[in-house]
């Protein structure tokens, strides 16, 4: 009896597994068929353009040309020789390196100050958020007016104090710093609102527990509760500000056009010039790839840090 049992069992096995395989194939086919439209659209709209840009960066295509040649890494080799590109990369990194920490810490400080107010919170929140709501293009014109050497209010104020007025946006030494000031001014309000949301989500009883545990100074409140509990928000704010700072374009375009003498040239503005002023589409594609590499790098660092440190 046992042998016949084993026999039946043994012979039944392959049949079952073949049957299962067939069924799972069928199930998979259905799943692929159902997700095909979404996958197709994702490929077409999200991944496709990136691949096209990557391929274009290996050609010598110019806008309006009827044909192109494959030139391998020639565009990238040219970048290394290109003084404007080197300047643009340097300026962009410097811009990000200043604007991100400044707007993050000022945003956090502003948020904490406003949250500590007993009244008038809504007013100050609106005031600091104003630059975020106004388009940067329009606000750039306001800044241009304010910074005008002859009748700008900043220059007038300096003259009043007996200090020399400058043509801030036209001088090599001040053009980029001025753009940074505008960048910080704009990002601060957005970061502040995010930090405010983060601050209100910290449970009050943690501060009360700390108070009873003996931590009564604002210093220990900040380091023991506020800062660690804000770390997910802080990471998010840093990443968002970094990506937006890498993309800085509007004020450069309106106020300095990357000048004087490329002193305020940044990556995206060079990309715009190469692509739409000089019609060197392939070179612009190469610059786009460089830009995307930076963005991917930030995103990668973010997800690594996120995994390790800032989840509770």
């Amino acid at each position: 009896m046992p042998s016949s049992d084993t026999m039946t069992f043994g012979s039944a096995m392959p049949a079952v597994s073949v049957h299962r395989k067939r069924r799972s194939l069928a199930a998979h086919a259905t799943a692929y068929a159902l997700s095909a439209p979404a996958l197709f659209l994702m490929g077409l709209l999200l991944i496709g353009p990136v691949l096209v840009v990557l391929m274009m960066s290996f050609t010598d295509y110019s806008l309006g040309n009827a044909s192109f040649e494959w030139v391998g890494l020639a565009n990238y080799a040219e970048m290394l020789e290109d003084d404007v590109f080197v300047k643009a990369i340097g300026n962009t990194l410097l811009y990000v390196g200043i604007v991100v920490p400044a707007s993050v810490f000022l945003g956090l400080g502003t948020a904490m100050l406003i949250e500590s107010l007993t009244f008038g919170r809504a007013f100050w929140r609106a005031v600091y958020f104003l630059p975020v709501m106004a388009t940067l293009m329009a606000m750039a014109i306001v800044w241009e007016f304010m910074l005008n050497a002859r009748f700008g209010m900043i220059s007038q104020l300096l003259t009043l104090l007996g200090l020399p007025a400058k043509n801030w946006l036209q001088e090599t030494s001040t053009a980029l710093p001025m753009l940074m000031v505008i960048g910080i001014w704009q990002a601060l309000g957005f970061n502040m609102v995010l930090f405010m949301a983060g601050l209100t989500s910290i449970p009050r009883d943690l501060y009360e527990a700390l108070e009873l545990d003996g931590g009564s100074s604002s210093w220990s409140r900040f380091w023991t509760v506020t800062w660690p509990l804000l770390s997910p928000v802080t990471l998010f704010v840093v990443v968002i500000t970094a990506i937006r700072s890498f993309q800085v374009f509007d004020p450069v375009h309106v106020l300095t056009k990357g000048g004087p003498n490329n002193a305020s040239m940044v990556l995206i503005y060079q990309l715009y010039q190469e692509g739409f002023d000089f019609f060197r589409s392939a070179y612009a594609a190469g610059l786009t790839v460089v830009f995307l590499v930076f963005i991917f790098a930030i995103t990668w660092v973010k997800s690594r840090v996120m995994e390790k440190n800032v989840h509770y």
């Binding site: 449970p203 009883d205 943690l206 009360e208 527990a209 108070e211 009873l212 545990d213 003996g214 931590g215 009564s216 023991t224 509760v225 660690p228 509990l229 770390s231 509770y312």
Partner: peptide
């Protein structure tokens, strides 16, 4: 006196544990 100077210990309903520690 501030709470920290009263030398009391409290167990909260929510426990109020520091989530990052």
């Amino acid at each position: 006196r501030r709470p920290s100077a009263r030398n009391l210990a409290m167990v909260f309903q929510s426990y109020a544990l520091y989530p990052h520690l």
